[in-house]
Design a protein around this nucleic acid. Structure first.
Lengths: 126, 126
DNA sequence: TCCAAGGTATGACTTGCATCGTACCTTGCG
DNA sequence: CGCAAGGTACGATGCAAGTCATACCTTGGA
């Protein structure tokens, strides 16, 4: 059962909810940025500079949280979000690689996803 | 540019459209059944026995086709659908494994996805 | 030739979702 | 203490998506 903040447990993460959450380009961008950063990195919601209002940002982060993709913890004034990297890799190996690869191709990189698909090596060498 | 039947080319397959298409459980079921069958298997729309009306079935198959997940070819009276397995593996390696694994866990299999994540070995040995 | 079967096209309906504005709460700081 | 800043809650709105009923087309077979 999810805790009172809405985080599902590892075994409760459902593929359908994850895919629905990742269907939105804004949410995909958040996960991609987190996946491209160091493991365990904690960022505030506002640090992503999403081109939508505050209320909408809250909505998107709630969706990501309830899907099991991110973890949110209160830290004083702000609310830090971290990627549940190990959990996602455990249940859906290779999924994060696909998101990171999407960012690469949009950034003007050459075609091909390289070694994507492996369980490791998603983030930078920490 | 997609052909007049709506099939996108390999390089036109977008992650966003694919994820949106797979967000629906009925469509996920179609892809999962195709991915679990032999490579190149062609089935009619009605062979999936989806619990919705004919018009809705057409709608779902159109979505899958325009996302680039299946290919539909006329064959006399019926319209056969085949999984674009190689194309999907090329652009999103490991994605089909996740769908097949979902079916396994729902069917009462033990936890864990085994060797999922590799590019090969999604379907049965053909 | 006529009819049944598989799909498609169209229009309508309903629900869900993304978005916003506003009000409100909490924390940190001057 | 008082205020600004980060988030949340709630209500409203507009649009996209899933569903259906119906009508229609095409093919294959009796």
């Amino acid at each position: 059962m999810p805790d009172r903040e809405g985080h599902p447990e590892l075994t409760e993460i459902e593929l359908g909810k994850v895919l629905s959450a990742l269907a939105d380009p804004l949410r995909r961008r958040v996960v991609r940025e987190l996946a491209g950063g160091p493991d365990g990195e904690a960022r505030t919601c506002s640090s992503f500079a999403l081109p939508v209002g505050k209320a909408t940002v809250t909505h998107h982060f709630r969706t990501l949280r309830e899907a099991g993709l991110i973890r949110q913890v209160d830290r004083g004034n702000s609310r830090m979000a971290t990627l549940r990297r190990a959990d996602i890799e455990d249940r859906f190996p290779g999924l994060l690689s696909l998101l990171v690869a999407e960012g690469v191709e949009e950034a003007g990189g050459a075609g091909g996803v390289g070694d994507a698909g492996g369980a490791g090596g998603v983030g930078p060498a920490v």
